[in-house]
Amino acid sequence: MDTPERAGLDPAEVRRLVREVRALTTGERPWAAGAVVVAGRGPVIAVEEAAGWAVRYASYNEEKDAGVELPAGARVPMSVHTPFDLASLTKLFTAVAAVQQLERGTLGIDARVAAYLPDFRGVAEHGITVRQLLTHTSGLRSELPLYDCRSDAARLELLRAEVPVSRPGGGYRYSDLNLLLLQYVLERIAGRRLDVLIRDGITRPLGMTATGFGPCPGAAATEDQRRPWGKAERGMLRGVVHDENAWALGGVAGHAGLFSTARDLAVFCRTLLAGGSYGPARILGPDFVELMTTAPGLGFAVDQPWFMGALAHRGAAGHTGFTGTSLVLDPATDTFLVLLANTVHPRRRDPDNAPRAALATRLARAVRGT
């Protein structure tokens, strides 16, 4: 790690950012059991901090509405090297894999999904396009109960029959199904599984050795997953995907399933800020990176104050994940912020995005000359 001064960041604001991250993991009901933050500007990592616990609770006590804490000696402290279940940050990698196919000419941005998946009759009948999947304008509902199906064949049949609930191309409707269907498109045209496409096309060239689909035994714990708050009876989860549909699909899915560290995600951010290259590796051309990260974005959310804070409104792009993960990259100032937290440990609650936005605002204030 380098210094805030070398990154052109105000060291006082950076110190405040670190204190705020630590505060998020303290108290009886912290925002997260543990967290890791990495932030920087250009090639310089100015902040790399871990706080709290990777594993704090043995289970969740429903009657007391509280986590059952492990004995002090059995807890696992958070480290800057701790992997996290990325949840929906996985979508960004699926989107990059798709845009790589656009660049190669094997995928058409405005092509109908039916051109690649004619057996998916629901999307075929309604003319859903690749662009609509990447921009969440397909009209598909947020998810399907694939976790309740008894076989892979039954899960596939649900997906093939699914029809939009609103007009494709109409308005924005965030849906896991968009990136899940895109996974099937990519696997059909490339003849390889999504995990292989992401490994060979993104993580291996960039040296992101800590990034991949699970299982990941050393990861931060997530949830004591039980009904009625969860959708499956799985107990305390660590190192296996939290998302129930990704779990039902074997852990590799276009919408969730990747594990990674904050340092690896910093490499991902720096690659995109540099126009698709990192050292000798090139995963995308600058025009295609711009296509992904400029409004309305392909896979990326653009200028969203609810989690980007003051970094929004000038072209920042990023995403969040249900387990407590997020990243923001701001081309205007060449800065990035990666925040990984296990906010669902010991159980999920309504998301509170205020800390994400506050930390992004703190980074915006730290940028000298703005």
Rank of each mutant, 00 (worst) to 15 (best):
V113G: 00
L70I: 06
E62L: 08
E162R: 10
V68Q: 05
T90S: 15
E48V: 08
Y147D: 12
T94M: 01
A58Y: 06
A153F: 09
G67L: 03
A154M: 11
S79H: 08
R155D: 05
Y172S: 08
F84C: 04
D85G: 06
G105T: 07
D119C: 06
R150M: 14
G52F: 00
T135G: 02
R131Q: 07
D65A: 10
A58V: 09
P164R: 08
S138G: 14
V55S: 05
V68W: 02
G122F: 09
G170K: 13
V123L: 13
G127L: 02
S59E: 15
A114F: 06
L92C: 12
D176Y: 04
L177F: 13
A72H: 12
P145R: 15
C149V: 12
E157Q: 15
W53K: 06
A66H: 08
T135L: 04
P164K: 07
S142H: 12
V55N: 01
R75D: 09
L146T: 05
T90E: 09
Q132A: 04
A95I: 01
R150F: 14
E125R: 15
L144G: 08
S59A: 15
R56F: 14
Y174D: 10
G108H: 04
A98L: 02
T129F: 02
V44I: 15
S175E: 06
G108C: 07
L159Y: 05
P118T: 06
S151N: 11
A115D: 13
V123H: 02
H81P: 03
R173P: 05
R75L: 12
R112V: 01
Y116I: 07
G170N: 14
E162N: 09
L146P: 02
L70P: 00
F120R: 05
A51G: 10
R112L: 09
Q101D: 01
V165W: 12
G105F: 07
L158T: 03
L159E: 01
A54F: 10
R56L: 15
L102H: 04
G67S: 07
L70S: 03
R167G: 12
E162S: 10
G127Y: 04
F84A: 03
F84K: 03
E157W: 12
S142E: 13
L102S: 04
L86Y: 07
D65P: 07
S151D: 12
Y60N: 11
R104A: 13
E162C: 13
R155H: 12
A111C: 09
D110R: 09
E48G: 10
E125V: 08
E162T: 13
A98V: 02
A72Y: 09
T94P: 00
R56I: 14
S175V: 05
D176V: 03
L86R: 04
S175K: 02
E162K: 10
S151C: 14
V96D: 01
S59T: 14
K64I: 06
V99Q: 05
S79Y: 04
V76W: 07
S138C: 15
V55C: 08
S175D: 06
G108R: 05
D152N: 14
W53P: 01
K64E: 11
E62R: 09
R167P: 10
E103K: 09
L117V: 08
L146Q: 07
R155G: 06
Y60T: 09
L70Y: 03
L177K: 07
G127S: 03
A66L: 08
L70N: 01
V113R: 00
V130D: 00
V68L: 13
G170D: 13
R173L: 15
E103L: 10
A58L: 11
P83I: 01
L134G: 05
